[in-house]
Amino acid sequence: MTETETPARRAVAAPEVPRRRRRASGGGPGAGTIAAFLTPFFLPFILFYLVPVGYALWQSFRVVRRTGGQYGTSYTTFGGFHQYGQVLSNTEFWSSIGRIGLFGIVQVPVMLFVALVMALLLDTPLLKIKAFFRISAFMPYAVPGVIAAIMWSYLYSPQLSPVVDLFGHLGLHPNFLGPGAVLWSTANVSTWLWTGYNMLIMYSALQAIPQELYEAAKLDGASNWAIAWRIKVPIIAPSIVLTTVFSIIGTLQLYAEPAVLRQISSNISSTFTPNMLAYAVASGNNYQQAAAISVVIALITFVLSFGFMRLTSKRAGL
């Protein structure tokens, strides 16, 4: 094993040396210049990304203790995995995770499937006025989640909604804000916001495929349908993986949309999503517990994103 590796490594390393020497003599930037380019980004990146991550980790291992009973002065001390134990045995935590899991399992595939179908249709000669479709579908991306949820909450509200009126004429009386429906009403807001964005990512990838690839398939008599599913979809698979990972991250962070719908529906609790739970716990001044929740959410995000990327890259044989 080691014997076969050595010549290969030497072969890679050999051209490195003269190249580096040539650069140095050609007057490449010095270490100070490089640092001057990197620091303006990395300084705030460290301060506002890495330090908070480290601080949250540190806090999640602390507990608050009091000296001498309930009215004694409080102090924080090392508590091991105490906060994590509390989080993992908290039923509200698990029900928020369960809710968001159900949301993600349904909403993400539905949204990405619609986005993919739209992207494929926009990429065929079947459709006219493509620019109008593309822009209209992408437009919700410009709308903040809070405002999207406000708009939809008027369309859900039994008093104001023309949609509810329309169903009423058909003899139906849906309650979009009912206990069973409100999760899907939230999912609808997310779908409205992000379908066009995901569609545009997939569409851009489709546009980058050279037309010649299809010409051969067309000469062989392949239908548009076969070309779409057998050629186009496999080629843009990396984009679909990317949109899935972004959607998983977004779902786990859900906050603004349910928070707005909570203002008009009593069926959304203050601990509806994991992020709402973290905020509610922090508002009760239990920062150590809130930090532990944030860390657990981030860990789940990492595991799911990387897990999904590993799974798909293995399946594609890459």
């Binding site: 380019f37 990146f45 990972v245 920062y287 994103s305």
Partner: peptide, 30 residues
Amino acid sequence: FRFRGREFLFSVVLGGVLVPTTALALPLFL
């Protein structure tokens, strides 16, 4: 620019893309 640790720095930045920003807000507040 070619320098030592370039790929490492880039992977740290890429890791940053995956960090849920809402998870940063509470510790940043403190």
